[in-house]
């Protein structure tokens, strides 16, 4: 069953030299699916994510969520950010609580839910800590708790691991996969943006490869590696898939790599 459908989407940033960020992008995501978008810097993948989140408008085409067009932020679609997006003046608990309260959940209830989700990401003991005193990995855990506490159907992730050190990132990747597979959580559809190809292959069911600006979908690669992927991360198949996607990106960049930052670090 498809949850989200992107149809002929395009986006132009007006200006002296107007920039065509996205050009005729179409794809769909099914329920329970983990989709990752990769592409060189500036290909509009983050813009695309923000349009799905409803905080950026389209110039053409539409995005359908359960067949209905998205026109603004939707509480069933939440997001985690590259730089965590935590409010520095609020404690971990207050950060998780805030969206709940804005959506009209009474204080007591919001507190209970926030505590529950902070516990789920292993930060129960840090509820009164300010972001300033948390490590990068812990901050992103708060970000994840805040997004999940809204019980969304779709979780958007904008390069969620790229400002973390590799060891922390690796731990968090597994945790996110665990959350995705958890049958007790209502959030089953994950859409991630990344420029790390190994990470994409490690996590996603499908990898959408985008071209440099103007961003178009060049190829939709199905990742045919069994899960849990930790056990298959050394398989030749894994490396072949990574290699194949990198080649697709290189081809989309016209065969030259300069300006096409492709990270093939091990996930």
């Amino acid at each position: 069953m498809k949850v989200l459908e992107v149809r002929n989407l395009s986006k132009v940033f007006p200006g002296e030299r107007s920039i065509v960020a996205l050009d005729d992008v179409s794809f769909e995501i099914g329920n329970d699916e983990f989709l990752c978008i990769v592409g060189p810097s500036g290909c509009g993948k983050s813009t695309l994510l923000r349009m799905v989140a409803g905080i950026e408008s389209a110039n053409g085409g539409e995005i359908l969520f359960h067949e209905k067009p998205i026109s603004g932020p939707n509480e069933k679609i939440t997001m985690i950010f590259q730089h965590f997006g935590l409010l520095p003046w609020k404690t971990a608990l207050e950060n998780v609580r805030l969206p709940l309260e804005v959506h009209g959940i009474p204080k007591e209830g919001a507190m209970k839910i926030a505590l529950e989700y902070l516990g789920k990401v292993g930060l129960g003991d840090f509820m009164d800590t300010y972001p300033h005193d948390l490590s990068g990995g812990m901050k992103q855990r708060v970000g994840i708790a805040r997004a999940l506490a809204m019980k969304p159907e779709i979780l958007l992730m904008d390069e969620p691991f790229s400002s973390l050190d590799e060891l922390t990132a690796s731990t968090l990747r597994r945790e996110v996969l665990r959350i995705w597979a958890d049958p007790n959580l209502p959030t089953d559809t994950f859409l991630m943006v990344s420029h790390n190809v190994s990470e994409a292959v490690f996590m996603a069911d499908r990898v959408l490869v985008m071209s440099p600006r103007p961003g178009r979908v060049v190829e939709d690669v199905k990742v045919d590696i069994p899960r849990p992927r930790v056990e298959h991360a050394r398989d030749p198949k894994f490396f072949d898939t990574v290699e194949y996607i990198i080649q697709v990106i290189e081809k989309a960049c016209g065969g030259k790599l300069p300006g096409c930052e492709v990270n093939d670090g091990i996930g």
Partner: peptide, 14 residues
């Protein structure tokens, strides 16, 4: 005010 924080407030629907 960082863009991300503005986006968060938008996303939350404040």
């Amino acid at each position: 005010i960082p863009d991300e924080i503005r986006e968060v407030s938008q996303l939350i629907g404040m």
